[in-house]
Write a protein that binds this DNA or RNA. Sequence first.
RNA 1: GCGCCUGUGGCGAAAUUGGUAGACGCGCCAGACUUAGGAUCUGGUGUCUUGCGAUGUGCAGGUUCGAGUCCUGUCAGGCGCACCA
Length: 967
Amino acid sequence: MEYNFRDIEKKWFSYWKDQQTYKVKEDANKKKFYVLNMFPYPSGAGLHVGHPLGYIASDIYARYKRLQGFNVLNPMGYDAYGLPAEQYAIQTGQHPEVTTNANIARYREQLDKIGFCFDWDREVRTCDPIYYKWTQWAFQKMYNSFFCNKDQKAYPIEELIARFEKKGSVDLNVACSEDILFTADEWNSYDEKKKSDILMNYRIAFMGETMVNWCAGLGTVLANDEVVDGVSVRGGFPVEQKKMRQWCLRVSAYSQRLLDGLETIQWSDSIKETQKNWIGRSEGTEVEFKVWNDNYNENEKSFTIFTTRADTMFGVTFMVLAPESDLVKELTTAEQKEEVEAYVKYVAGRTERERQIDHKVTGVFSGSYAINPFTGEKNPIWISEYVLAGYGTGAIMAVPAHDSRDYAFAKHFNLPIIPLIEGADVSEESYDAKEGIVSNSPAPGKEPMTFDGEALILNGMTVKEAIAATKKFVKKHNIGRVKVNYRLRDAIFSRQRYWGEPFPVYHKNGIPQMIPEECLPIELPQVDKFLPTETGEPPLGNATKWAWDEKNRQVVDCSAIDNETIFPLELYTMPGFAGSSAYYLRYMDPKNEEALVSKEADDYWQNVDLYVGGSEHATGHLIYSRFWCKFLYDLGVSCKDEPFQKLINQGMIQGRSNFVYRIKDTNTFVSLDKKDGYDVTPIHVDVNIVSGDVLDVEAFKQWRPEYNDAEFVLNDEGKYVCGWAVEKMSKSMFNVVNPDMIVEKYGADTLRLYEMFLGPVEQSKPWDTNGIDGCHRFLKKFWGLFYDRDGNWLPNDDQPTAEQEKSLHKLIKKVTQDIEQFSYNTSISAFMIAVSELQKCRSKAVLKDLVVLIAPFAPFIAEELFQSLKSLKSEECRVKSEESAGGSVCDAQWPVFDESKMKDSEITMPVQFCGKTRFTMQVPADAAKDVVEQMALTDDRTAKYTDGKQIVKTIVVPGKIINIVVR
RNA sequence: GCGCCUGUGGCGAAAUUGGUAGACGCGCCAGACUUAGGAUCUGGUGUCUUGCGAUGUGCAGGUUCGAGUCCUGUCAGGCGCACCA
């Protein structure tokens, strides 16, 4: 009987659906395992063969874990909000919801064909009000929380208010946008608006006037990870820096926890490294410098700089302020005013992209000086764009001898350079390394400043020691403080778009107000246009029913706004990462209307054990999700403070394009191997009419009208061979391979097997349909173990031979190990070997284990054969319980590896040279004694064999002894 | 510039702790069965050499009885960060 994958796959797909085979419930008697894929954005193009790669990898693991007796949660859903649907809506007027739903339906259809064990009852969609209710809820919780630096934990904002009422902001150590000083009396005297403004400074979700990435092309602000090289990731539109009032999340508060958490999770080094860079922790020192100029006497005005090189205090020759710094205005003297203003204007006119690409040395003198606290010298204060306003204090001390940027600046403006490290030559370039012995600190013959009679002397110390000594000194004498800086910025949390979660916020007399929790969700209103309004408001400004009736607690028509009881609702929407940050929690309890996730479900499922997705989310989703999780952990909603325990980044599947070669100015196409000697133009040809790089000539003629009368120069075998290249998989290259077509031609099991056989899951590789026949043949051979060509059922009650047992157990060991390590390609190789070894095996017991082993990879064929084998007695089937005795292969038990079955004629023994064990080798058991005697004769290099030949190395493999004769 | 990763046949790739390099698959070659083969089966297939044999994991060294694997340098490709003080 033929392996009829079409009937088999159709049959078991409906069976699994009818039996709800993949439905999971919390079960205290079973250990849980949570497998998760990054949920897809349902784009209009549908799935190509690259998309399911990660899903297949995780599906195999999920099925394997289930066969091992775990209760496996393997859900799927859709990240349904996003720009493409909205852009499409703007162009066509089609509501994004309509396109999104159509795309989801298409995705689902494609996914269903591949045989995943998803529990679709748990599906979530980020655009579904019952889902985004909890996105809005989490936002409100963040709004009503602040972050205590000392405890490294979020608390309710009420606790902060209570503290303000008692003690004001004195000695406060909480995460904030800026330090604000006020007493309890002052606080209590403030009006509601003032209090609200101050609290915004501390809330975890807050509205702030910040520098944002404004993308005019998209009409919205973007987060830092959505901008690359000064242009938007989506669309590639230029992005400029602009100060705007936006909702933000105080992600930076969690910097240290985000960094520490990386130590507790099993992610790839490269992703961890990327996140570490993005968080950018740097330990340094803040030092106060007093200002000296015509306007200020000494001691009147000072400012703070941040440095990681406290050891270089004696090498400071000038100071630099960021052009955007508030200090610029204060420190510019009257005579420099004009020049400084011109410079600041010039810098403001430079785009982010320009600043990133060319690092011009520019700057202007402010007219003021700063007094170095250690030398007492007056250093000029300059203003330059190479100092960033957003990092540290926006002001630096410049040490040109030991910082390349300061060096370039000093050379350009002819400022002094003082070397501080013994033997450092700074005549050509700066010495940036943090190595060497400090000198010139203080310079010979110069008296350093004293503090309570004590002076800082660093000469003779190593750089490391000098940094430590300076830190200690600075702290002791209150000149500054030890400070840890992070590069991680707060996330801009609002977008000027339509197709996103609306904020559960209304504005009352300039003060944002939260919609009462019990009124959530606030649903996205209907609009007739998806573009910004004529007055420049975001698209939600087009909504007519978008006001909040405080008294009746409901959304009402905008025309009713009276600013007494009815107020306008927020016009911004949330960004894409809002809905994707905590979706993994929602899968645990997707229908709960009372909570994001119930205590019981959260306690049972905890967090994701295995997360599979692309590495491109390293600085986006994977940071935001960790932040969100930590916040929910502080809140007591999640019992884990890391969302994803183990992360696998599947590689990208690139396209493999095919080319035909048209002879210039003709409609004749020449085969690849004949093209030399012709002047040809390569033309992309649809890979779906090419098989094994051989063009289907007739299909090509039909492909495009202009090729109807094409002529061909074929090769000697009468074939047209195409050229090929690896490119991105895209429609325009005609190299998109659709999984449906593969399933139609070869079946889902073959597709699954082949995608895994292609190479390591984590590696990027081009899709090449050419090799797929090998996997399909393997499944046919596998089928052939059970049915002969005439359809006779082959398995019987024969006892397996020792050889067959060995083949099986070798396979069990290999496959089990490989799945644990995600080396699916090598386990498929092992299957191929095992199947050839077991060609003659008729033993049901062995064949049954084989079926269970293949089930994670090729579930359809496994189910079919398993059901056929059910004529076996249930204990032989090793089915776990009576009630599931008639059940699916999914409920079978993973075969147990038995070391004793592997034992045969070989043993492992150590080989010694000169009394030291050099290596181990496998030898026939009965020959062991013999070999020991032979090896006992060894000296440092040679071993003598009984026939008198000199041998340098003896490797014994099963059955034969290979001697390598010494040269 | 700094940090991380990867370099193995015509192709995708294997190779416990250093121990037969190239498993397995594709492709290719030969043969069998065929009217036929983009079906199936069998055998072969790193390179050079008629053969014996030599040689071979980007390149150059080193450690070792022994290196794809460890160390140093170097080249190439990829990724991340990037006036972050």
